[in-house]
Design a binder for these strands. Structure first.
Lengths: 233, 233
DNA sequence: CGCGGCTTTGATCCTTGTCAACTACAGTGG
DNA sequence: CCACTGTAGTTGACAAGGATCAAAGCCGCG
């Protein structure tokens, strides 16, 4: 553990700030760096043939953005910031070194990848067969738990416009607005200046049919908080 | 490479046959084995609160089913066969050994996991924002390419009932039937006894807006075919 | 022959998309 | 201080894709 921490503290250095709505990496690219989010919210997205944007994942502090490029040849999607973010770049060679020579870190990275996959599966289920209101409630529950898990749950947390919400849930921004206001009128959430706060987590969770097991937060996996998050501050 | 092959040939032993529509592993389980598909088609699925089934991934020959349990604590979904399958069980400890001591195999497993994730992202995009006919055409294109990649593309390949198709695409079986017949009448596919064959891949691919890059088949990654597939026969 | 599973077809309803107008608000320059 | 602009949120009317319900056709199998 000590040498792992030592190694990680070298990795997480020279953070820099990226403002909201900037791209970190584009579809098709094959860059020499992997990105780690220290603060703020970023997303993976794909641009559709009709010009629309589909957001397929949200990255919170502690999340590694694109291990893909360290293993796969090229990016099959883009990554951009949603809010102002603090980011660390990790050279591809460093990732290789971590994977090859630090078994516990490797395990942590594998764990993180599998959790990402589990979240994708849950999104897929929500997307395909649930009404937009249940789906949105579920998203808020998930973000609530994930932010809590990395100690970033501030009282109002969702820096998302309704257009961004629509791009996440696969609905139009008009419908996103209707759903937001319906959830607000039900007293489940509160909205102020594009920031959503959960009013009654239990009720929201029941409404959403939220089952947290897919987040694997209680697993025996690696350290409770993802690599990097703790060391950063 | 030689010692990798040697090791793998030990891993892929004692295959057994499982008939169609059997479960290999249940949601919540934490078994001592990982499953590798040698022949047939299996799927990951989740059961919805209303009793419905959402299929979130298809596993073809050469695919490892549930690396999850070797790293994460428990299964957040179930795995079942769709057709008769030939399966190999790999003990958890063997997976640990492969990950720890065989860098190339480890890389291959990581690669496979990331490709699975890429496929999930694509499914998420298709699910959320495309009409059912485009979505279904896209699925057929993907299966066509994946089966081709592992040398299992026979002239008629889709052993799926319309209910299963609906569970994959997130539509009702009634609507699945309407879409199937529309694709058939357009001359894009042919159907005989629950088996779909692609009539005109280029036309289907254009119709579906299919972009194969997310499958990462041409990457510099590990061996062309996933681990185990080649050794099996 | 009859049964059960899958497919096909029709009718109706619901969720959501699309179009369009209007409001609220922050920032900018005169 | 105020008009001007751009962005985000709000609301209504209508259309479309797909769900649901129901019934009938098909077919393999005991």
């Amino acid at each position: 553990m000590p040498e792992d921490m030592e190694r990680l503290s070298h990795v997480v250095s020279d953070p820099f700030v990226v403002s909201a709505r900037e791209d970190l990496i584009h579809h098709g690219a094959n860059p020499e760096f992997v990105h780690l989010v220290l603060r703020g919210m970023a997303c993976r997205y794909k641009i559709l043939p009709d010009g629309g944007r589909a957001i397929v994942a949200l990255m919170l502090p502690g999340d590694i953005c694109d291990l893909n490029i360290a293993i796969l040849g090229h990016m099959d999607h883009s990554i951009g910031t949603l809010t102002d973010c603090e980011i660390v770049r990790i050279p591809r060679s460093t990732i290789e070194d971590l994977l090859d020579n630090y078994p516990r870190i490797r395990r942590a990275l594998f764990w993180a990848t599998l959790v990402d996959e589990a979240i994708l599966r849950q999104w897929l289920v929500n997307m395909g067969r649930r009404r937009a209101d249940h789906q949105m409630a579920h998203l808020f529950c998930e973000l609530h738990m994930r932010l809590q898990a990395v100690g970033q749950l501030h009282d109002s947390f969702m820096p998302l416009t309704q257009e961004e919400l629509g791009d996440i849930l696969g609905i139009s921004s008009v419908h996103a607005q209707r759903v937001v206001s319906s959830l607000r009128h039900s007293g489940l959430i509160n909205v102020q200046a594009s920031r959503v706060s959960v009013m009654d987590f239990d009720a929201l969770s029941t409404f959403a049919g939220f089952e947290e097991d897919y987040l694997h937060l209680g697993d025996t996996g690696p350290a409770r908080s993802p690599p990097g998050a703790a060391d950063a501050t």
